[in-house]
Every structure is written in structure tokens, then in C-alpha cells.
Write a protein that binds this DNA or RNA. Sequence first.
RNA 1: GGACCCGUGGUGUAGUCUGGUUAACAUGUCAGAUUGUCGAUCUGAAGAUCGCGAGUUCAAAUCUCGUCGGGUCCG
Length: 378
Amino acid sequence: MLQLIKKDRNTKARAGKLRTAHGEIDSPFFMPVGTNATVKTLSFEDLLEFDTQIVLSNTYHLFLRPGLDVIGEAGGLHEFMSWNGPILTDSGGYQVFSLAKLRKLTDGGVQFQSHYDGSLQFFTPEKVVDIQNVLGSDIMMPLDECAPYPCSREQAEESVKRTALWAKQSREYFLKTQKKKERQYQFGIVQGATFKDLRERSAQQILEVGFDGYAIGGVSVGEPVPIMFETLDWVLPFLPEDQPRYLMGIGLPDQIVKAVGEGVDMFDTCIPTRYGRHGSAFTRKGRIVVRNAAYIKDFGPIDEACDCRVCKKYTRSYIRHLLNSGEILGLALITYHNVYFYVNLMRQIRDAIANDRYWEFQKEFLEMFRSELEPSTV
RNA sequence: GGACCCGUGGUGUAGUCUGGUUAACAUGUCAGAUUGUCGAUCUGAAGAUCGCGAGUUCAAAUCUCGUCGGGUCCG
């Protein structure tokens, strides 16, 4: 599914094209998170204004609400939410981890209690494929077991073993149930927590099953960032060059820039949307907390280097006021800018790779960008 | 003219009867956390010499007197 177009000369960054049933995607790319069939506060018209290529949605949440009968009758998730572009759906494996209070794991699957109505539910690898078949996602993820951080070796081994078992079942069932007409893809997920040999074992096992692309899971679970990059170092050498590589749940802009330099193609994170709703905005120089009193009379745009429609028109002062007053427009404006920032960053990344200057781009970006910034320096 | 009630961080209140370490709670403000979603939540900080004055006492937001401000009722 991936056509590699360009490999950067000085780094491991690569650029390519992914063909899906709902259009081509230029890689590396970022997937805005739309858990509930919406990228919070944004319309799909908004997303198209700045050429968002793909959105991510979620099996777990959509299965529980509105339910498969609704989305099935609507004609699938694309029809349901009126988005004609590609969709990747997460499997619910992460929710098994993040909603761990309500779960019971066995080799057969995962039993959990709906956090909406408390009803008891059971996911098997096959059922998760079934659900995503109904959703009609262009890229589906198999049920996996995402180990927490920190994590004992025993627990990590268990998670690797179960993830491999489920991967095999998921893939077999996927291939059996695929309709030739609307080609869907399915990625494998590598687990193994923070153990080098377990990461390698998991990578080999998942590779052996064979998927359309490969994801590094079990990161963005609270581990220190250097450990996340170490994990990347361990796993990436195992992944085939001609297939897409997806770093799940990552990350801050500088983390994405670094990971692309290591050879990652796909990212998703709720950071631009969630941080936005919490009052943070991303600029070329780093993250600023627009909510802070420092911007109370700052009548400049969020980011002077940004040409999104929010930065062309609205001031930090005004957006701060909206956020401070709990006005929904504030959430929408800052989210729009942040998602634009991410999508636009990926465009710059692709340009740099195309021109064989990713090393320079990365160096410049990391020198300029600070995840934490003193207001006076922005 | 008389009787009574109320005055405590920006806001709303608790504590006063029965005096006792650093005046509590909510909200707001300020700041931090947030990585396959969380308008959630959590963490930390600043902010009141308890309307003002005098007295009693080892010790007063608390008791007494006066006074100022707000309110209720009676004339």
C-alpha cells in the first residue's frame, strides 16, 4: 500500500504515498484524533480547508455509542460523519489499557464494562475486525494488549504473547472477511513495554503474521520520552522499508520531527486538540499557554509565522478571553490553529524530505521549538 | 425616636451560643500536569490583621461597650 517516493540522504526520513479506498495520502502524515466520529470542535469543512488527509476514529467508543446498528444503517462511518477521506480506526486495545478499572483480560479476549451505561461487553480479535468492517475504516488496527508504564517483565511478556496470539487471529479473520471491492488495510501492533528483547520478539512475531503496515504500540502511556525513543530504536530495524510505520499516540511537535528522522511515517495524538481545549497553542517557537495572564493584552496572533485563518484574524488577547470565559468559540479557534499547525508541520516535513534537506530542517526546527517556553521569549 | 438582624480572602458562606496552635469550605484568580481524547480530572500558589475603636482576659472573629455601614420591624 505504500509507495516510497523519496529517502532523505542524511537521515532515515522517508516520503511516500499511501493508497486507500478513499484516496491517496502523502507520508509522513498526522492523523487528527476523532474518537467520537468528530475531531472535537472542528467541522470536516474546517479540516479540508487545510488539506487534512486522514482522520483517526475509535472502535471502542463508536461501538458503545451510537452503536453498530446506527453506523451500519448509515452506510458506514464515512457516510455517517460525512467524511470522504481516509479513516484509520483504533481497535480498543488502548481503551482496555486506559479504562483498566473495568476490564478482565483473557486469551480469548477482553471483558469490560461500558463506561457509558455499565453494561458488560466482550471483545474478541474477530469481533473487533467485524466492528471495523461495519465502520468501513480504510486502515484498521487489531485488538492488542497495551502494557502500562511502569510494567513488570512478567506482565510485558504476557502482553507480547497475547498481542501475538490476537494478531494471528485478527489477520486470519481479516483476510477471510475482506471484500475485494473496498480494500481495507490492517496494521500489526508491536508491544513489549520497555524491554529490548521483548520488543524484538514482538516485532518478529507480528512481522511473521504479516500485515499491511506496522505500528509501535505501548508508548505514550506515561513513560519518559527518552525511553520512548529508545523503544523506537529497538523496533524500527525490524520493520520492512516498503511498508508504513505508525508510532501510536505520539506526540509533541519536536517528538514527531525526531521520529520522522528515525523513519516513522504516521502519527496520531490528541495533543493539538486536547492541549488546545486546555489553553495551549503551538507556535514555530514552541508551546504557549494562551490562557496565561501574560497574553491578557497581547493583540498579536497566536503564531506570527502561521497563515491559518485563525492567526490571520484573531488575537491572543481575544482567544484568551474566550477560553477564560468558557466560550466554545475559544476552544474551536485554538483547536483549529493547533490542528493546522500539525498538518502544516507534516507538509513542511515532506517538503524537506523531498528536497534532501531533512537533517537541516530537523536541526532548525529543534533549535527553534521549545515544548516549554517562558512567555516573554515568544 | 425605639427594637432586632447582618458585616470574615474578589464573590458566596462556615466558625461566634460554649474565647484556646497556622481562621475553614466552595467558587473565582494565578500557575503546572495532560501524548492510540478528557469542554473531564488532578496538583500547587497567591489572596482575609474577621467593618472600625475601646474594654475584659494569659489569650478575642468569638464576650462587653461605643461607633460606622447595610437590612427588617414598630412608632
